[in-house]
Every structure is written in C-alpha cells, then in structure tokens.
C-alpha cells in the first residue's frame, strides 16, 4: 500500500495512544483479518478432505471403473456412474447450444446497437433471471414448461428431425430435453452478463477503425469487436458450462431421474447433481452413501477445472484493458 511512503510519526494533533500501543492495535487488527482470510482456503481444503473421506470406501472398491460402468444397483451394492456423467454432459451441452446464441445476441445488441436508455434496464431484467431460485424454475418447469413442450415442441421436432436417433422413440414429459431447456434459461443470464462485460471492454478505436474502413455496423461487430473479445466470450461460455454442470434442483425436477443412457433426448435421464439430491437422504447402506460422495467429489473436481479455465480466459481479455489490476 501507499502508506509505506508516509512518515512514521505524523506531526499533527497528538495521537490518542502512544506509538507502542498503536502498533499493538495494528497487530491485533491484522491478526483478526488474517484469521478470516486463512479460514477461507482452510474451509475449502476441509471440504475436499471431507468429500474424499466420505467417498474413500467407494474409491477403493470401484476405483476408476466407477465412471465407466453403468450399473447402479443399491441393493446389489454395485455402482457405476457412467449414465450420470453422460447425462450431466449431454444436458449441459444441449443447454449451452440453446443459451449461447441467445445470450450472445443479447450481449451484442445491448453493447452495440441498443439505444442508451434501454441498455441498463434490459441487462437488469435479464440478470433478474439469475436471482430466481432454482426450485422455482423447477416448479414452473413441471407445471408450465413441460406441458408446453409436450404439446407444441416435441411432436414438431420429432416430425422434422425424426430421422436422427436423438429425436426418436417415445416422448416423455420429464426428459433430458426438458431439463436442458430449463437449464438454458438458467444459464443464459450468466453467459449474457459476462460476455457483455467482455464486449464493453473492447476499446472503441477497434470498432471506429472498422467503420472508418467502410464496414456496416454488423460487419464492424463481426470483424473487429467479436474477434477481439473472442477468448473472453469463450470464457463466458465455459463459465455457463460450470453453472450448468452443477445445477441441481430444477434439473432434478425435470429430467425424469432414470439411471439409463438413451440416444433419445425425449427419454428420461439423470445427472450427477440430481442423483445426489434424490438419493442421498434416503441412502441407508454405507457404500451407497460413499458412492454418492464419490459422485460429489467428481462433480466438484470437474467444476473447479471448468471454472479455472473460464476465469483464465476472461482475465486475459480484461487484463488487456484494465492494465493488470489487482495482484
């Protein structure tokens, strides 16, 4: 801090405390703050440790086969998480497939084309979506979204794209597709607001140069603004992926909860988070609990990697503009 450049003893009004005691105050203050700051990494380390201890029995028994086997039979005490892993990946990717074009469109519109008075209110409204609790999305999904999809969307998709294996077979209401749609709505505000921040960080000279060369407004955006912000936008998408992977309640309520891998997106599936949510409170066997903890540990590790990657990409773009603020 800049304080080190200041004289140790200020000549102004007599300090209330002698210098010696002031140092004591400083030390106590710093000690208290340090304790809190140390507590944060310690807590996280503790979380990893507890998850590992909780899942040790399952790790020892199933090892890495856990993620390649697809039998999930609590009675026979055989556990394989492949359907959960696949379900998590499929629902998240499908959600991003829907959410990313929309969020990028909104972000581009708000930073490049919207009139000034419209920008803040619209951004605020979309971020409001992020404030709605997951369980409320689930409720709305069960009673409004799923009936709507069943009536208007799924049959049409099957008619048009029925030649693809993803859209064949019996149509279920609670299904991989329903869960992905609700996930898309939930992830959208995150992708939107981060890509908006990244686009705002693109220097104006960038678009002015393109416009001066005779580009139309859209061409300026696509040739000068978006490429400049590319890695930040990728970061925003990956951040959205991190959110989608760990999202629990709404997915649990809409995905149908079946330990099964099926090609059809209209069939019920399962995700890692949903399996934990559904089975943890009811699991009685120790090995069942350990298997679920193992799933939690894997989910945690995946989200850490995904989030770290996203931060790195976003930080690279932001750094270019803000000149490396912070440490």
């Amino acid at each position: 801090m800049a304080t080190s450049t200041l004289p140790e003893r200020a000549p102004a009004p007599a300090p209330a405390l002698p210098l010696q005691q002031r140092h004591v105050g400083d030390r106590v203050f710093r000690l208290l703050l340090t304790l809190a700051a140390v507590a944060v990494p310690v807590l996280l380390a503790f979380l990893v440790l507890e998850l590992w201890l909780g899942s040790r029995a399952a790790i020892e028994r199933f090892g890495f086969d856990f993620v390649t086997s697809s039998t999930w039979d609590p009675v026979a005490e055989r556990f394989g998480a492949l359907p959960l892993v696949v379900g998590t990946l499929v629902s998240s990717f499908l959600a991003l497939l829907i959410a990313v074009p929309l969020s990028l469109g909104v972000a581009i519109f708000l930073t490049e084309f919207a009139p000034g008075w419209l920008r803040q209110p619209v951004a605020f409204l979309i971020e409001l979506l992020a404030a709605i609790p997951s369980v409320v999305y689930g409720l709305w999904g069960i009673f409004v979204l799923v009936p709507f999809l069943l009536r208007w969307v799924f049959p049409v998709l099957q008619d048009w794209l029925g030649f693809l294996p993803f859209f064949q077979g019996t149509i279920y209401g609670p299904s991989m597709f329903s869960a992905s749609v609700i996930l898309a709505i939930m992830v959208m505000p995150y992708v939107m607001s981060v890509s908006r921040e990244v686009l705002l960080a693109v220097p104006p000279s960038q678009r002015e140069a393109a416009l001066a060369l005779g580009a139309t407004r859209w061409e300026a955006v696509m040739t000068a603004v978006v490429p400049y912000a590319r890695s930040g936008i990728v970061g925003a998408v990956i951040l959205g992926l991190g959110r989608a992977l760990g999202e629990t309640m709404a997915v649990t309520m809409l995905i149908g909860n079946r330990h099964d891998i099926s090609a059809s997106l209209f069939a019920p599936g399962y995700t890692m988070a949903a399996a934990i949510a559904n089975e943890f409170a009811e699991a009685v066997a120790d090995i069942h609990l350990a298997a679920l903890s193992y799933v939690a540990l894997l989910l945690f590790l995946v989200t850490v990697v995904v989030n770290a990657l996203a931060r790195l990409l976003i930080w690279r773009v932001a750094r270019g503009v803000e000149g490396g603020r912070g440490a």
């Binding site: 700051a37 140390v38 944060v40 990494p41 807590l43 996280l44 503790f46 979380l47 507890e50 998850l51 201890l53 909780g54 951040l239 991190g242 959110r243 992977l245 760990g246 999202e247 629990t248 988070a273 934990i276 949510a277 943890f280 679920l292 903890s293 939690a296 989910l299 945690f300 989200t303 850490v304 995904v306 989030n307 770290a308 931060r311 912070g326 440490a327």
Partner: peptide, 24 residues
C-alpha cells in the same frame, strides 16, 4: 490465494456443499 479460493468456492455446486455439511 484467498481471492483465488473464493472464486473456486463461488463455482462450487451447492449440492456438493450439502454433501460436505452432511459428512462433517
């Protein structure tokens, strides 16, 4: 370190934190 860990914690799925509280 604390800042980095806070970012990691922010991205941790809340269900995982539930498992942590259960085990602990």
């Amino acid at each position: 370190a604390t800042r980095f860990v806070a970012d990691v914690m922010n991205g941790t799925p809340s269900i995982v934190v539930g498992v942590f509280a259960w085990t602990w």
